[in-house]
C-alpha cells in the first residue's frame, strides 16, 4: 500500500498541531479538544473522500457528481447550523445560502465553458465554493446573533422610532457582512504576494504548468469571491427575520424560538 504510506507520512505534520495544542493548554483557550476532533475528523474525512473521488472520477458520471455536491451542501449547512446554535432555522438558512452560492458559481463556470463539465473539476471547485460559503454563513449568522443580543437597546430604540425590523437591524447586517467578506477580499488582494493559494501550490508541486495553475487559481479566487458574497448576503437577508416577530418586535428570547 504505497498510497497509504504517502498519507501516513503526512501525519508527521502533526508535530505542528502539537504546538497548537500546547499553546491552547498554556493560554487556557480550552480549544484542545476541538483541535483534536478537527485533526481526527479531517484525516478520516479526507482519506474517505480520496477514495470516493477516485471512484467518482472513474465514473465520469455527472449525476453522481451532482449527488455528491448536494451531499456536501447539506453537510456544510449542518455544520454551519451547529456553529450558529440557537439561531432559529439556521439549517435551512445555511442550506439555501450555500446551495444557491454553489449552483450560481458552478453554473456560471459551466455555462461560460470556463471549466469542462467533468468530475475532476467540479468536485474540487465545488468543495471550495461550498466550504468557503459555509464559513461565510456561520460567521454571518453568529455575528448577527451576537450583535442583536448585545445591541438590544439600539435595536429597540430604532423600532420605537418607527423603524421596520430590517431598518433597525441594518447596521448589524452591514457589520456582519463586512466581517464575513473582508478576510476573503484581503486574501484575494494579497494573493501571490503574501501567500500562494493552496490549489495552485498543489498543482505546481504536482508538476502542472505554472501558467495553467495561475489561470485556474484566478478562476478559483473570483468564484470564491462571488459565492461567498452570495452566501453571506443570503444568510443576512434570511436570518435576521428570526430575531423579530412579524410585528417588528424583537423576540424576547431569540434562542428559545424555533
Amino acid at each position: 500500500m504505497a498510497g497509504l504510506q504517502t498519507v501516513l507520512s503526512a501525519l508527521l505534520t502533526l508535530g505542528l498541531v502539537a504546538v497548537a495544542v500546547a499553546l491552547s493548554l498554556y493560554e487556557r483557550l480550552d480549544l484542545e479538544k476541538d483541535i483534536g476532533v478537527a485533526v481526527v475528523r479531517s484525516f478520516v474525512q479526507l482519506a474517505a473522500i480520496g477514495y470516493v473521488i477516485d471512484f467518482i472520477f472513474g465514473l465520469e458520471n455527472l449525476g453522481a457528481v451532482a449527488v455528491l455536491l448536494g451531499g456536501m451542501v447539506l453537510f456544510a449547512a449542518w455544520t454551519s447550523a451547529r456553529r450558529a446554535a440557537d439561531v432559529p432555522r439556521a439549517f435551512s438558512v445555511a442550506a439555501v445560502a450555500v446551495g444557491v452560492a454553489a449552483v450560481a458559481t458552478l453554473g456560471l463556470l459551466l455555462t461560460l465553458r470556463i471549466v469542462p463539465p467533468t468530475a475532476r473539476y467540479l468536485i474540487p471547485l465545488g468543495g471550495m465554493v461550498i466550504g468557503n460559503s459555509m464559513n461565510a454563513a456561520s460567521l454571518t449568522m453568529t455575528r448577527i446573533r451576537d450583535d442583536v443580543a448585545e445591541q438590544r437597546l439600539k435595536v429597540e430604540a430604532a423600532l420605537a422610532l418607527g423603524a421596520t425590523s430590517r431598518q433597525a437591524v441594518a447596521p448589524i447586517l452591514r457589520t456582519a457582512l463586512q466581517r464575513a467578506l473582508i478576510p476573503l477580499i484581503d486574501a484575494t488582494k494579497t494573493t501571490g504576494i503574501i501567500f500562494l493559494p493552496g490549489a495552485m501550490v498543489g498543482m505546481i508541486i504536482a508538476g502542472a504548468d505554472p501558467l495553467e495553475a495561475v489561470r485556474l487559481q484566478i478562476v478559483v479566487l473570483y468564484m470564491l469571491l462571488g459565492s461567498v458574497s452570495i452566501a453571506a448576503i443570503l444568510v443576512g437577508t434570511l436570518s435576521y427575520r428570526s430575531f423579530f416577530t412579524p410585528r417588528h418586535q424583537l423576540r424576547t428570547m431569540p434562542q428559545n424560538k424555533s
Binding site: 430604540a157 423600532l159 420605537a160 422610532l161 418607527g162 417588528h248 418586535q249
Partner: peptide, 19 residues
C-alpha cells in the same frame, strides 16, 4: 399598524442610543 402606533406614541429610554 405597530410602526404607525410607535410614531404616534414616542418613547425615551433609560440609555440614549443615538444613531
Amino acid at each position: 399598524d405597530p410602526l404607525e402606533l410607535r410614531r404616534r406614541v414616542g418613547m425615551v429610554f433609560q440609555i440614549p442610543a443615538l444613531f
